[in-house]
Simulated assay, not measured.
Amino acid sequence: MTIVFVILIVLAALIAAGLVYTQARTRFVEREVPAQGSFIEIDGQRLHYVDKGSVEQGEGGAIVLIHGLAGNSHNFTYALTELLAQRHRVVVVDRPGSGYSAPRPGAFSLVAQADLVAALIERLGLDRPLVVGHSLGGAVALTLAVTHPASLRGVALLAALTRVIDTPPAAFKGLDIRSRGVRRFVASVVAVPMSVLAGAKSAEQVFAPEPIPADFGVRGGGLLVQRPVAVFTASTELTQTPDSLAPIVARYGEIGMPVAILYGRGDAILDPVLHGERLPEVIAHADVTLIDGGHMIPLTAPVEVAAWIERAVERSREVQAA
């Protein structure tokens, strides 16, 4: 038996072990953190969403919440959704390939995702909601404002990606895989075991300078990223978003609706100055607020964030009435 043959056998065994472990871990994660909302099919895309509050509560203004890279609807239902649903109808959507929304080739671009959100708003009968986007979800919200301005009354950006960045944040560098084939292999065999072993370090970077909530894995949906579909989606979005965002940034001057921006001063993922404080230079009705905290303020500062969103709703009404 040659050394090459032995190496091939070992590699095959490791790959098989990775596949088996990944499948088992996926089943475990989906038992621990099951789908919490409803499903709808739009143009062949199966979306999972959470709908809280009543139509009557929606008289306070409907709100749509869009999560960020490697996130899901649990990031908002952790605490923020219940606070907002006391006065509003609140819809939280899992973006394609994230949470429990199905992946679909071609659905990862910002324009494609904005098209889906606009269609969801119409199908659910929401009357020009305030659209709130966290991190990459903020880029989707801004794309919606550019491509479907009649679908919403305003945009609220939470620690949002608003500019093109060529170098990904350190916490996400492991997802920077350019080859689709390699990305699929890593997602199916390697990423889930590695995430279980070293995922806490990445989560610490995402939450810094604040601690990770002890119940983030289940209540906050953190475990859902430990599935091949979530890894593949996050990697695809990370590599494709710069090209997808550039033409949207070039059209920011077209946005006439109010845009509220909230950032934690200690955000270790996205620069609050570049992505937040400088946005009013290119968007006429943009307003920036800074609070203490990091990138995950929807989970770590839900009361402050909910109060800020309430003000964004009121401001969107004032601008619309003027």
Rank of each mutant, 00 (worst) to 15 (best):
L223W: 06
A268P: 07
V196A: 13
A203T: 07
V132W: 02
N72K: 03
F28D: 11
H275I: 09
L47H: 04
V10Q: 13
P247C: 11
V273H: 04
I297Q: 01
V64A: 02
E318A: 10
Q57S: 14
V90N: 01
L142P: 00
G44H: 14
V111W: 02
V190E: 13
D43R: 10
I66W: 04
H134R: 10
A114S: 07
I177Q: 03
A306H: 02
T22H: 06
R251Q: 03
V155I: 11
Q36R: 12
A85L: 01
D243K: 15
Y78F: 10
T2M: 13
P211I: 05
L130G: 03
G221F: 05
Q240Y: 15
V10H: 11
A118L: 02
P242L: 11
I42C: 15
L84F: 01
A85Y: 01
G125F: 06
Y100Q: 04
P302F: 02
G61Q: 00
R317H: 07
R153S: 11
V92Q: 00
S202V: 04
P96L: 13
S101H: 07
E304N: 15
H74S: 08
A160M: 01
Q240R: 13
G61W: 03
G174D: 04
S38W: 06
Q240E: 12
S195Q: 10
V111P: 09
R87P: 08
D287S: 08
P149A: 07
F216M: 09
V132Q: 00
A214I: 13
S98D: 15
G37P: 08
V10Y: 10
R265Q: 10
E237P: 07
L274C: 15
G181P: 07
A107M: 08
L157Q: 01
A246S: 13
P242Q: 11
S54E: 01
Y21K: 04
L124M: 09
F28A: 13
V33Q: 06
G97E: 14
I9K: 05
R95H: 03
I261K: 01
G97M: 07
G60Q: 02
L279V: 04
G133C: 08
E304S: 13
E277N: 12
H275D: 11
N75A: 05
P211D: 14
